[in-house]
Write a protein that binds this DNA or RNA. Structure first.
Lengths: 149, 149
DNA sequence: CTAGGTGCAAACATTTTGCATGGTT
DNA sequence: AACCATGCAAAATGTTTGCACCTAG
């Protein structure tokens, strides 16, 4: 099924096509909430019947990050959060009540950030914006979370 | 000397005025590079001749954060970075070459972020922007780092 | 005097690494 | 067959906590 896609991505990254890597890619692709900690991925693997060690999950996620397949975030404390790098380099808004993460992208802001970096004498290579707030109407959370997808 | 100021801040926060707390406040106030990890603060204390435990540094920094005196950042991985909360809620730009952190603040962006949050149905309570780049002219680094102070 | 603060060491949580075994190309 | 990947357990970080002692108010 999806293995074809995954295989291509992995080969392009110069990584052998192994079961743990395929499974992890698929999990990241198919997860409803696609912002996952290594532990989240690990638990999903287990409940899918995949026998993969947590160390391998970390190793694979780190390799994926190096290959540009995955992005690593450090939203608040504790664990790192990973998500598939779709190339659109979006930003995030975290609900302080539910912990859920939504995405957005705004050209005006990106343009302004580049100007600011230039004014400060920097060559800008990346940026991260994280907004913290609360969803006004929790019942519409689902919808709102999908708003930028 | 500065103890008066520190005392006031501490009392306002409902914290007893102790040597470790005063010293840590002073370090954060006076450090050239005022974005410091707990370890940085700890080492500075030691080299200043203050006998304070690392655990105390963490406890004090956490209390300061709760009291609104200090802000905690998670720029990339590893350790948390602390800085005095001056109330201006500025954002940061990190040099990927030198690791140095500079600050900036832009009303246009803040306004736009509030709009975005509202559009997404969120009540915005905070935001963090981190730019990653390289200083074009390293020799002027000092100056540029001070640009927003 | 009493509540709260501190140092130290142990506990924790997360992530990384060494090494022998196993799978891909 | 050669090399890379994996699992496990141990180690390495970074941060928190329990406890006996100490100190500011």
């Amino acid at each position: 099924m999806k293995k074809t896609t995954a295989n291509i991505d992995l080969r392009k990254a110069g990584l052998k096509v192994t079961l743990p890597r395929i499974s992890i890619l698929e999990i990241l692709e198919e997860a409803e909430q696609h912002h996952m900690s290594a532990e989240d991925v690990y638990k999903t693997l287990l409940s899918n019947g995949n026998e993969v060690g947590l160390a391998t999950v970390y190793r694979v996620l780190t390799q994926f990050e190096a290959a540009g397949l995955v992005t690593r975030h450090h939203f608040d404390g504790g664990q790192a959060i990973f998500e598939l790098d779709t190339g659109d380099n979006h930003d995030h808004i975290v609900c302080l009540k539910t912990g859920k993460v939504a995405e957005f992208k705004d050209e005006a802001i990106e343009t302004r950030l580049m100007e600011i970096a230039a004014e400060l004498g920097y060559t800008l290579s990346d940026h991260k914006i994280v907004l913290y707030g609360e969803v006004k109407d929790p019942d519409e959370k689902q919808t709102r979370l999908k708003i930028t997808n």
